[in-house]
Simulated scan of single mutants.
Amino acid sequence: MRHEVVIPKGLDEKRIREWAEQQNFAGVPLGLICELLLGLDPEIYTTNERISASRAEGSLFGAMVERNILGKQLEARKLTPEAIRMYEQNVSDWFIGDFPYRRLRVIYARGGRQDLALRVYQSRAESLRTFSAMGKSGQWERAISEAEAWIAKLAVAGERRQDHL
Rank of each mutant, 00 (worst) to 15 (best):
H3A: 02
V5K: 02
V6I: 14
V6R: 15
V6W: 08
K9T: 09
L11F: 06
E13N: 11
K14F: 09
R15W: 08
I16N: 09
R17S: 13
R17A: 12
W19M: 10
A20Q: 10
A20D: 11
Q23H: 04
Q23T: 05
Q23V: 06
F25I: 12
F25S: 14
F25N: 13
V28C: 14
P29F: 05
L32M: 12
L32W: 06
L32R: 10
I33K: 02
C34A: 13
E35H: 13
E35W: 05
E35V: 06
L36Y: 01
L37G: 08
L37S: 03
L37R: 06
L38E: 14
L40F: 04
L40P: 08
Y45T: 12
T46W: 01
T47K: 13
N48S: 11
N48F: 05
N48A: 14
E49G: 08
E49K: 08
I51C: 03
S52W: 08
A53M: 03
A56F: 00
A56M: 09
G58L: 06
F61C: 05
F61K: 10
F61N: 11
M64Y: 06
V65G: 02
E66I: 07
R67H: 13
R67K: 15
R67E: 09
N68I: 05
I69V: 14
G71R: 04
G71D: 01
G71I: 09
K72F: 08
Q73T: 09
Q73S: 11
A76K: 13
A76P: 06
R77E: 15
K78V: 10
L79Y: 07
P81Q: 08
R85C: 11
R85N: 13
M86S: 10
M86C: 15
M86V: 01
Y87W: 11
E88Y: 00
E88V: 01
N90F: 04
N90C: 03
S92G: 11
W94N: 03
I96P: 00
G97Y: 10
F99Q: 14
F99K: 13
Y101A: 00
R102F: 02
R103K: 14
R103T: 06
R103W: 02
V106M: 09
V106T: 14
I107K: 10
I107V: 15
I107C: 07
I107N: 02
Y108L: 10
A109P: 04
A109Y: 01
R110K: 15
G112V: 07
R113C: 05
D115F: 01
L116A: 05
L116H: 09
R119I: 05
V120T: 10
Q122M: 14
S123P: 02
R124Q: 13
A125P: 07
S127F: 07
L128N: 07
R129M: 12
T130F: 12
F131W: 12
F131D: 07
S132N: 04
A133W: 04
A133E: 15
G135W: 01
G135H: 04
Q139S: 13
W140G: 07
W140P: 12
E141Y: 04
R142H: 12
R142C: 03
A143R: 10
S145P: 04
S145N: 15
W150E: 15
I151D: 00
I151A: 01
A152V: 09
K153Y: 02
L154K: 02
L154E: 06
V156T: 11
G158D: 14
E159D: 12
R161H: 09
D163L: 11
L165W: 00
